[in-house]
Nucleic acid binder design. Structure first.
Lengths: 195, 195
DNA sequence: GTCTATAGATGGATAGAC
DNA sequence: GTCTATCCATCTATAGAC
């Protein structure tokens, strides 16, 4: 991995973010050293500080980019329709997106407690905004009597938790295809909410 | 918190485990130092090593005791009956137990990656045994046509994830009583599985 | 843009006094 | 059983050479 001295800003920056993401996902933020990240990239630890002011900011920016991407992707995907259709779109989107960003999702959930108070507040706000997208769908279906929900907020949190669980066991090339998994989760979700 | 020198084995041992549990739950295993744990207990770091050979073993024993307690408690609770009754008992037990052991549950889930390979295998085995209890209920209901499940294994994992989610938001004295939360989750579970 | 070198802090764990 | 003292490894971050 060693690299000769010289200018590589265009590749080193992204390489650092990718290496940090993978290592944080595997071992956890607190257990990963700047030296480890640098070694994975093929530079020395000091060089990392050309791209991030400190380790905390590196973590925070990874999490913020993930949450902003997630929100923007959903906003580009969602469409009008009846609540059941909108809910199906959300379930399929959520699973699909999470399959492709397992490290991002894992880090953004597990490392919340390693953020400074200020950074935590910002990430939590983005997380809440995403939950609110699901909650709005459930509330619309509840009001229209398409859904029968014991409690809209609790159902929101229960669904998010259930869907997030996929990434703890899904592996490419496993017993079930992605499409099959999406169908299974949509089946369970529909039965859970339908009037 | 300072304490005079002398014999306090009966209280220091449990105090160390409690302090470690709380600190690991709040900040994560890797981010907590032995000095912090000792300070919380009111002793110096060196004294901890009278009670644990090292930090890793301290974590491992906390997790193993939790998983063994969880399994033993469920085995003492479960009873015969039709699958729907057994499933309701499981859902209520799981939520109740997790309300009372939030730190234990949190640590046992979040710190898996900080276990040595050998310790991880043991904890994972206990975790799997607990999941199998739920899976057996679902399989029985599926075979008896009481339940209609798209996939027994996936439903098991989805239910566990959904139920575990409770501890990420539940706080004593919040909007909902424990009993109300149990009813809500049982309502969602029943609708999700019933034929 | 990256390196070498290092400051300065903190970590896990042990030795020996009391 | 606990403390003081300490070893030695490792950490984040910076300074200055190339």
């Amino acid at each position: 991995m060693a690299r000769k001295a010289g200018s590589h800003a265009e590749i080193t920056g992204p390489a650092i973010r990718l290496a940090a993401l993978r290592l944080f996902a595997r071992s956890g933020y607190a257990a990963v050293s700047m030296r480890e990240i640098a070694s994975e990239v093929g530079v020395r630890a000091g060089a990392l500080y050309l791209y991030t002011p400190d380790k905390q900011t590196l973590l925070f920016q990874l999490m913020r980019e993930h949450m902003e991407d997630l929100l923007a992707s959903w906003e580009a995907t969602r469409s009008d329709g009846d609540p059941l259709e909108r809910l199906e779109a959300f379930v399929r989107f959520h699973i699909d997106y999470h399959f492709d960003r397992q490290d991002e999702v894992f880090v953004s959930y597990m490392e919340l407690r390693n953020l400074t108070e200020e950074n935590f507040a910002e990430i939590q706000g983005l997380r809440r905004a995403y939950e609110d997208e699901l909650e709005a769908i459930l509330a619309a279906g509840h009001d229209a009597d398409d859904f029968r929900l014991p409690d809209v907020r609790v159902t929101t949190l229960a669904l998010i938790a259930m869907l997030n669980g996929v990434i703890t066991w899904y592996r490419d090339g496993g017993r079930l295809t992605r499409d099959r998994i999406q169908r299974i989760y949509w089946n369970m979700t529909r039965r859970m909410v339908k009037a």
